[in-house]
Design a protein around this nucleic acid. Structure first.
Lengths: 183, 183
DNA sequence: ACAGGCTCTGACCGATCGGTCAGCTAGCGT
DNA sequence: ACGCTAGCTGACCGATCGGTCAGAGCCTGT
């Protein structure tokens, strides 16, 4: 694995667990057994490193959420849900960052892009829900699923059997979103 | 309002929105229109300020979760749920901090206390659930409710009618926790 | 009038932050 | 043998961090 790719992975893990602003370039360099200068050789700045770390996840999220731009989910709801859950499972660390630091890292362009996508998602469900309670179901389902996955280990939850997790997540979220877009 | 109390409130808001490590004492001082030295006069250190800011919320959380230490919820489940939701609504900012920064602020004693309480909560539901899916329902319900409340404004959600929010939250969480401890 | 404590402040400290820069080294094409 | 480039480094920069300290201003009890 190239040094650049290794730095990307280490930075993502540290940004997600300790927080972006609490993670110094010095620490990333030490974890990768290189010098701080080397980090700044591969990535022009700390912000560029953040962008490289979470950019792919945002691209994927945009792709997953693209079908929502149309009139509605229609009969493809389950497929959308599966795609969304797969996204959560594959990009846990990045989602963890969006969830926990998305609001505090405003003014960082790449985070702004993630927030925009999430806002679109929220707007879609807000538009397709007919009451405050339905709207809250969306928030709990999506936020809760993302939150639980990211902090499960901190709660002593075992989430190793990925396929079982996936099936349970889809079932629960499907229930929560039941009233939405069944028109 | 005393300067000390004002600093506590300002610090809590900043810690919750921008993050603990991203918030400098200088900024808190400026928001309160006092000097940084004055902040450190009222609170011995940044960590003491954090403790003062979120300590009351942890006390309250411990009180709300105390009934779980026994054999189970029994027929007091709804009362517990209402107490928990009221806690979430009253201490939104503090809960936001536990959720978003609880894992990254380890080694700070007061945060450790909060994490311990949350771990107890998780352990209780883990013990009283009979499958992975039930366990995940707990995570989604509690985490999702807390998450949604704290970041609702960032998602464009309007959560001003507190009584309506409260009723909807209790309804949804009651559904999610339905299989748990109905024995 | 005066002494003492409470509140607050600016000057200052060492440490660490993100970032710059000149230069070292190894490999490779010619 | 030569020069060029990619990868990497230590020394260094100004800014900001959390925290210390001596002292100013003010209010109150005596």
């Amino acid at each position: 694995m190239s040094t650049q790719e290794e730095l990307r992975i280490i930075a993502l893990a540290e940004f997600a667990s300790a927080g972006y602003s609490a993670t110094s370039l010095q620490r990333i360099a030490e974890l990768a057994s290189v010098s701080k200068s080397s980090v700044l050789y591969h990535f022009a700045s700390k912000e560029h490193l953040l962008e490289a770390a979470i950019g792919p996840a945002i691209d994927r999220m945009e792709a997953v959420l693209a079908p929502l731009e149309g009139t509605g989910l229609g009969n493809e709801r389950r497929a959308f849900l599966e795609g969304f859950v797969d996204f959560l499972l594959e990009y846990r660390l990045e989602v963890n960052m969006f969830i926990n630091q998305g609001s505090s890292l405003v003014d960082v362009p790449v985070i702004e892009r993630a927030n925009t996508v999430v806002a679109h998602l929220a707007e879609f469900f807000s538009r397709n829900s007919q009451s405050l309670e339905e709207n809250m179901r969306f928030g709990i389902a999506l936020g809760g699923a993302a939150y639980m996955l990211c902090t499960a280990h901190a709660l002593g939850l075992d989430v190793t059997p990925a396929t079982e997790i996936r099936a349970a997540l889809i079932t629960i979220m499907n229930e929560l979103l039941a009233p939405v877009s069944t028109t």
